[in-house]
Design a binder for these strands. Structure first.
Lengths: 230, 230
DNA sequence: GCGAACATTCGACCTTAGTCGAAGACAGCG
DNA sequence: CGCTGTCTTCGACTAAGGTCGAATGTTCGC
């Protein structure tokens, strides 16, 4: 059985090292590479039969967790292993909560990586001990809810969203995507509806809160608390 | 010598515990309390001779580091000790980089807290080992630059900024501050100038990046890289 | 007291953002 | 084939955002 593995990281050297570690444990692997969120989805479109994605969380072009959530939404059956330099329990738990089948720390050795990749390719889910998600906890539930909202975005909407998270104007986004500003605005409206934000600023805040302490996840989505003060 | 110590935390119980720990080591302390960023600055205005601030980083009303930076800017001579539940080296280093004279983990014991507070009241700066800031490193320099920009904001501008970081409309901000929308817009222009942002979305992104991995601190402030892609 | 610098306030004016309705493209399904 | 639903696209219209210039008040030092 021949596997197609997509390695996503912005450092070419680390991509090679990662592929090498996987090749050592699984001789029958073909490797694809991507260095940003855009090329990740491009490559997946050209190679629809990819068996596994190794996804770095700190990618240029979009917040890592947003990419993970959207990838999970557009390809529910495709296994994802998150690779990250930050490997605290909260990050790991959140990655698994967002639908990753495994988590590899960037400081892990080749043997660990190979073993985990093999396990995920067999259909298992690798959960580091002490990092089980707890959907009954309030913060985990909020994160999960946000992930599901993010997963609802269509491909084009996600591209727009990525540029929104860079602080771009609608005009710039339209220019880069080769469409009219009116179209960008339409996408923006759809994005804000799906994420539950009242304007683009709140949408950006929601994305930012994916990476922060769970307690800061509370964002006033309804126009209820004008008087909230502090 | 009688000291006035302002304890800022949103949990009343923890405020009391903190004050108790300090009182154990320093018998001649008077305590003031604040539960949010707004009351922090209100209290300071009413008690200009405060000798020390114990500041929690996870405050409602504004991102913790923003409050720290602004407090440092408006009261350069006032010692600040940051109190935080997250006590990884990066957070500690950043707090000291932003001008805090000390850092206390929320899991620290009363004796440690008392000792550090006494030291800071004597005029010393308490730096946990392994957390020295390195202004020559690129990420530290970027954080420091951002802190200095934040410190330039006036009191009113900082209030506006705080509500901006909650995703509020100019109209809402005007209502809460009892001023015209035109005035809010003027403040907003000044804020964006000082922070180096082209619009409110980028301003929010800058604030968010204060709390993230340093590598994500790079935000395209100039309108140079339209073609950047990924 | 006087002038300089600055914070705060605001109105007029233009730009950007966001909504609504609608049209074409494309898939799956009976 | 024809129907339905969704994605993508767009123009016209309204709302919000942002700039400029200016007036007022305050705090300095001279």
């Amino acid at each position: 059985m021949r596997y197609e593995v997509l390695v996503v990281d912005d450092h070419p050297l680390f991509r090679a090292a990662l592929a090498g570690a996987v090749a050592g444990a699984c001789s029958d692997c073909e490797f694809l590479e991507a260095d940003c969120v855009a090329s990740l989805f491009d490559t997946l479109e050209q190679h629809p039969r990819t068996d596994l994605v190794l996804l770095d969380l700190n990618l240029p072009g979009a917040y890592g967790f947003c990419a993970l959530a959207h990838l999970r939404g557009s390809r529910p059956e495709l296994p994802i292993i998150v690779v990250s330099a930050t490997d605290d329990p909260r990050t790991i738990r959140q990655a698994l909560l967002f639908g990753a089948q495994g988590f590899i720390s960037k400081s892990a050795g080749a043997d660990t990586i190979g073993r985990d990749v093999q396990a995920v390719l067999r259909g298992e889910t690798v959960t580091p001990s002490g990092c089980e998600a707890d959907p009954t906890s309030e913060s985990d539930a909020a994160a999960l809810d946000l992930a599901q909202r993010m997963a609802q975005l269509t491909a084009q909407q996600f591209r727009v969203f990525g540029m929104l998270c860079l602080g771009r104007l609608n005009k710039h986004i339209a220019y880069e995507l080769q469409i009219t500003e009116a179209t960008v605005k339409a996408h923006m409206t759809a994005i804000m509806r799906k994420l539950g934000a009242a304007n683009r600023t709140q949408a950006v805040l929601l994305a930012g809160h994916l990476l922060l302490e769970p307690q800061q996840l509370k964002v006033p989505l309804e126009e209820s608390d004008w008087e909230s003060g502090c």
